[in-house]
Simulated scan of single mutants.
Amino acid sequence: MSNAIVFAVITGIGVYGLIMLLIKRRHYRFKYEFGIEFLNNLQKYWESSGKDWDTYSWLIHRSNKMQGEMGGHGVTHGYKPPYQNFIIKRYEIILNMIPELRKCLENDLLRTNPLASQYFNALQESLVRYIGSIEDMETDLKKELKNPIKWFRHGVRDIVALPAYLLGWLGVISDLTVKRIVSSLLFSAISGIFALVGFVSAILTIVIGWDKFLEIVTKIWP
């Protein structure tokens, strides 16, 4: 195997990793812009005192997507509804509090009640936390885009993940299972080892030549 082929393989994996990072950055940008749009419309609905039905309809229409995008940022555990004697273990903030906010704003007696402000503040704070988290991830991703070694690592990571993606595409395992596998610490460790071994091996092959490298490997693992 010539040095040119080894170099081409490294470059190809690196370029593939860079493309995946750019796609990921674009995905973060879409998530950020959608979060800002949702927050702005929530603010608009609040300022209308519940009279802007078009904005409310938009919020309800996009609430399922927003709840899914937010993940853990949109869920509170051990929530006790006002004036109730039970606790909800997993309370989805967007899906539940927007209709509750509407009920408060529609009711003249509740409109001036602190409960309406509590719902609005809880919704606003959860969205702001989510948007802040997306910004942090974008900042970290920008640093990775400046590091060619990170390109290679992400390229190897996606290549190692191909069997899981293929099983998900064929319907053998669910998309949620694929996501859990790829985001697990074990998978990160395995892909990191593959990337490190592959990168070091490629560099050694280029420096000392394929034949010499193969001789060294044969001595280590006869």
Rank of each mutant, 00 (worst) to 15 (best):
I13P: 00
D140L: 11
L145S: 03
G155F: 02
F152C: 03
F194W: 07
S48E: 05
E215N: 11
S126D: 02
R25P: 00
K103G: 08
V172Y: 11
A8I: 13
Y56I: 13
L123P: 05
V200K: 04
D136W: 03
T218P: 06
W210Y: 12
W151R: 08
L166E: 08
K146R: 10
T11P: 03
K103M: 13
A195H: 01
I36T: 06
L127E: 08
K146V: 07
K143Y: 09
W151E: 11
G17I: 06
V156R: 01
L115P: 00
L176D: 14
F34T: 03
I94H: 02
K142V: 03
G71K: 01
L185E: 12
L170E: 02
E125H: 14
S126A: 15
E69T: 02
T76F: 08
L204F: 08
I98Y: 02
A116W: 15
G68N: 11
L186R: 01
G50T: 07
L39V: 01
V156T: 06
I94V: 15
S117N: 15
K179S: 15
P222Y: 06
L170I: 11
L123Y: 11
E69S: 10
K65Q: 14
L101P: 04
G155Y: 04
G74Q: 07
E100G: 05
G155L: 01
K142W: 01
G78Q: 08
L167F: 10
K142Y: 06
T177Y: 03
N85K: 11
W58F: 14
Q84A: 11
D136A: 12
S48V: 07
E144G: 06
G50W: 04
Y16M: 13
K51N: 12
N3T: 14
N41Y: 09
I98D: 02
S57R: 08
L39N: 02
N64R: 11
G14F: 08
L123G: 02
F38L: 06
F152M: 09
L109G: 05
G74N: 07
S63E: 03
W210T: 15
V207I: 15
A164T: 15
Y165R: 13
N85T: 08
L59F: 00
D52T: 04
G68R: 06
G50L: 03
W221K: 03
R111K: 15
T55N: 06
F199H: 11
I23D: 11
I220L: 09
I87D: 02
L141N: 09
W58I: 08
Y28H: 13
R29S: 15
V15K: 14
L101V: 07
F30Y: 09
N64A: 15
F199D: 05
V197W: 05
V6I: 14
F34N: 09
G132F: 00
R157D: 13
K65E: 13
N96Y: 04
E125I: 12
K219P: 00
Y32D: 00
I23P: 01
G78M: 01
S2Q: 15
I173K: 07
I94S: 04
V15C: 15
T205D: 05
P222N: 09
Y130E: 01
E100L: 12
H61D: 15
I23S: 12
S133I: 00
G192I: 05
N3C: 09
V178Q: 00
M1Q: 09
D52H: 10
L176I: 10
F34M: 07
